[in-house]
Design a protein around this nucleic acid. Structure first.
Lengths: 228, 228
DNA sequence: TCAAAAGTGTTCTCAATACACCCATGA
DNA sequence: TCATGGGTGTATTGAGAACACTTTTGA
């Protein structure tokens, strides 16, 4: 089978656009590169794909390395393959976007790795086409969020409705009516009210809820559309 | 920059899931392979990506080769990269789906190339993961069709409303109400009624329409959502 | 004259939107 | 007692869904 041997081969990379939500802001994880190429520049979290792993495997590997997390919501965005996208070498990158719950432990790991969270509307210049990837991922999430309850991936397991609303406002970049938002979210019947309140952001306190994964799966299988 | 040299390289392929619409049926273009590997098996239209072209360039190249067409509606589906997806060689494939207008000229070119159109619900066994790609592409189109008027890409420039409806029924795999369908399509205000009738499918004849690309672009820029 | 597809309107239901006040609490 | 965010209900509007008959014409 000579056919194959005459063909060109490529470096294949994955770059992960990792979103988190903290202090009412949507954030992106960026990495300060300690080694060449692009030493001391900022980039997304990425890696070359190894011959013995799939693209998805590679993304999981580096996500775990940089956050310690497994089983994270992560989807393929698209491939970036312009001939001149990397001036050094011919390399194709498959971008992946991920949504994670920021907590103290993750913040610690992230810091140790020389990465940091930056607000989504203050993303600095990143290397290569990584700013483009970020923009594309944001648009994708905005679209996805309209039909799937992805927001829950970014919040702690227990969350309040006002926090959920703040997240959707960050994703859509517009204000929502609190009465209508609450009505709609509750009408989906996929969040469960708990007997606890969160008093960190008001004196009255807001009831905590949790996401009902089982019920969500069931409704999803029935073709239910969660248009938020 | 040793770093790069230690990294693994991959064959990168594109496979195109090419849809057409003919005789009231949604169809897929499949290729009868004349050479190894997989001689005499059926596959999607595909090719290896060359070092001097992007993935999109490669897809355009083979689409032109197999149909003679340029400027076709084509989008990336996703990458297929399982380690064992091709038992022969380690190869990553970026699948692309395309929507084209079938006409006599295209039928001729397709035949010369040893390719053929097959009905979407009678797709035979294809090589590797090509059946999976086809299923994934169909689902994607179904989703896209709900929000963008992609259906027009598959019809002749001039078409009747009943034909358009038949196309959407093929994509959604369910019957639609002709009155409601007509009302909705016309409400978008993106098709223009012509002074001609198509009498090939009824004695009374149905008025021909054409798609108003300019107006569509304008509405799209305004954020208009074409939920069909 | 009849078979076959094209074309047309109305009603009902439900979801989206707009909108303003009271509640609970710690400071 | 007051400032702050949490929580609630209603009226209006518009879109989606259901539904049946007339029109045209070639065979």
């Amino acid at each position: 089978m000579d056919l194959y041997n005459k063909k060109d081969k490529f470096y294949v990379a994955v770059d992960c656009i990792i979103f988190g939500f903290d202090a009412g802001k949507l954030k992106l994880l960026v990495f300060n590169r300690k080694i060449d190429p692009f030493k001391n520049s900022l980039s997304l979290i990425g890696s070359f794909v190894k011959i013995g792993e799939s693209v998805a495997d590679a993304s999981k590997r580096i996500l775990k390395e940089f956050t310690g997390l497994e089983n994270v919501y992560m989807k393929e965005l698209k491939t970036y393959s312009s001939v001149d996208r990397d001036p050094g070498y011919r390399c194709i990158s498959v971008a992946q976007y991920a949504l994670i719950r920021i907590n103290a432990n993750i913040k610690k790991i992230v810091e140790e790795k020389g990465a940091k969270w930056c607000e989504i509307d203050r993303v600095p210049k990143l290397i290569l086409d990584h700013n483009q990837m970020t923009t594309d991922a944001l648009n994708r999430i905005e679209q996805i969020a309209k039909h799937k309850p992805v927001g829950f991936e970014l919040l702690p397991k227990k969350f309040t409705i006002p926090k959920l609303q703040a997240l959707y406002e960050a994703i859509y970049r517009r204000k929502l009516d609190p009465r209508n938002f609450r009505k709609k979210i509750l009408s989906f019947d996929v969040i469960i009210k708990l007997d606890e309140k969160d008093r960190t952001s008001s004196k009255k306190g807001a009831y905590l809820y949790k996401f009902d994964h089982k019920r969500y799966k069931k409704l999803q299988e029935l073709g239910y559309d969660f248009e938020i």
